[in-house]
């Protein structure tokens, strides 16, 4: 339960950062915090009491109760790399915004767009 609450706290911090911080770069970092919250949540769903990592060692046929659920790990593995790529793309957009408007401050940007 504490793990779920930790994920919820991270998610709230990230969302609050995206909504409240004025600088677009900080908004992007806050979005990364939000993505980490989702990853923590999924990986904690995969946890099983008395189970080990989903890699087969020596021994006989695997029993489902002895290994953690590999599916959330798989999904989050791809999610991490996708979040790296989206961050890179967003940084590219920020460079263009910065060169066109000479600021990354949300309020000044809105003033210039008006």
């Amino acid at each position: 339960m504490t793990t779920y609450a930790f994920a919820a706290a991270l998610f709230t911090i990230g969302l609050a950062g995206m909504a409240l911080l004025p600088n677009l770069l900080r908004k992007l970092l806050a979005m990364n915090v939000m993505q980490v919250a989702v990853i923590v949540f999924f990986v904690s769903l995969a946890f099983k009491d008395g189970a080990t990592v989903p890699i087969l060692g020596e021994g006989g046929a695997p029993v489902a109760a002895e290994f953690m659920n590999p599916l959330p790990h798989t999904l989050m593995l791809t999610a991490i790399v996708v979040s790296v790529s989206t961050t890179g793309l967003a940084l590219g957009l920020l460079v263009r915004i910065r060169s066109r408007f000479e600021t990354l401050n949300e309020r000044r940007l809105l003033d210039k767009l008006r």
Partner: peptide, 24 residues
């Protein structure tokens, strides 16, 4: 989240549907 299955519960829906097939 209070409605979710207990942390580490081996009988949670996420761990019982398709995951045993993958593991075994």
């Amino acid at each position: 989240m209070a409605e979710l299955p207990e942390f580490g519960d081996p009988a949670s829906p996420a761990s019982t549907h398709v995951s045993p097939r993958f593991i075994e």
